[in-house]
Design a protein around this nucleic acid. Structure first.
Lengths: 133, 133
DNA sequence: CTAAACCCTCCCCCGTAGGGGAGAGTCAAG
DNA sequence: CTTGACTCTCCCCTACGGGGGAGGGTTTAG
């Protein structure tokens, strides 16, 4: 299979495939005599896995690590489970931060509706946004 | 006031001040005869505003626009209120996405605990992560 | 007088996941 | 024989908010 074929089948761009090779998600491809990359069908599995893993928020660096387990002949499951739990807990923190921010913004929206724009002095640029302590 | 003084008073770095000048948050500073930047006290207000606006999630580009209203002699309040409401609604969307992702991750965590690692075939790299359709 | 502490400009660097395009080679069909 | 569709490498670019450091000039206190 050539790079264009496999890219099409995996629904990614040719650039993406070459990028994955460069960062170690894919092993350096075999080459045809003309220098073109040549792929075995199982590379497609790896591309599909990569897409799926990205979809649940893993970075390419993490995905590369997971794949490295397989390359070493180990099952990556325990590591994957760690990553997932870790990402979930980071996510919980992140959501809490964003919710706090949203609450602040809602307060400011109300404040902005109550304040009189003509009373806004140039000194503070805009009196809707309160100075951070 | 020199750049180091004002940076210290605003709790930002000297690099930050120069960066703000370059991107138009601050007007080009007056210079002393030796070429050193020289600041009037009101610039400090602008820096404090910038910090406060960043704290509620505005980008430097948006902050620059807000300041531009002031420079044109208009009150930026209406624009600021728009930005805040827009940011709040983006945030609501973003939070929903992250919550959906977290739900997926929790499902996968359970799945990962139930599945047998020794039954994980190399083809799919790791069977905890399901293929995206 | 000298060393520390400022200040200046200029340019490259971080992370993330590739995209854009130059300039060149290759291959199949018409 | 040429045209169009592939492919190759290489290098720069994106957003964001600056940080790091080179290589210089200035100032101020001891």
């Amino acid at each position: 299979m050539r790079i264009g074929d496999i890219a099409h089948r995996a629904s990614v761009s040719v650039k993406t495939i070459r990028h994955y090779e460069r960062i170690g998600i894919l092993a350096p491809a075999e080459r045809e005599s003309n220098g073109y990359r040549s792929y075995e069908p199982e590379v497609l599995d790896r591309l599909i896995f990569t897409r799926s893993a990205q979809a649940i928020g893993l970075t390419l660096g993490e995905i590369r690590e997971v794949i490295a387990f397989r390359e070493r002949g180990e099952t990556p499951c325990a590591h994957v489970l760690d990553l997932i739990e870790q990402r979930a807990s980071e996510l919980t923190e992140r959501i809490a931060e964003l919710e706090a921010l949203r609450a602040d913004l809602n307060t400011l929206t109300q404040r902005g509706r109550d304040l009189d724009p003509t009373a806004c002095s140039p000194t503070s640029i805009c009196h809707i946004i309160p100075p951070t302590p």
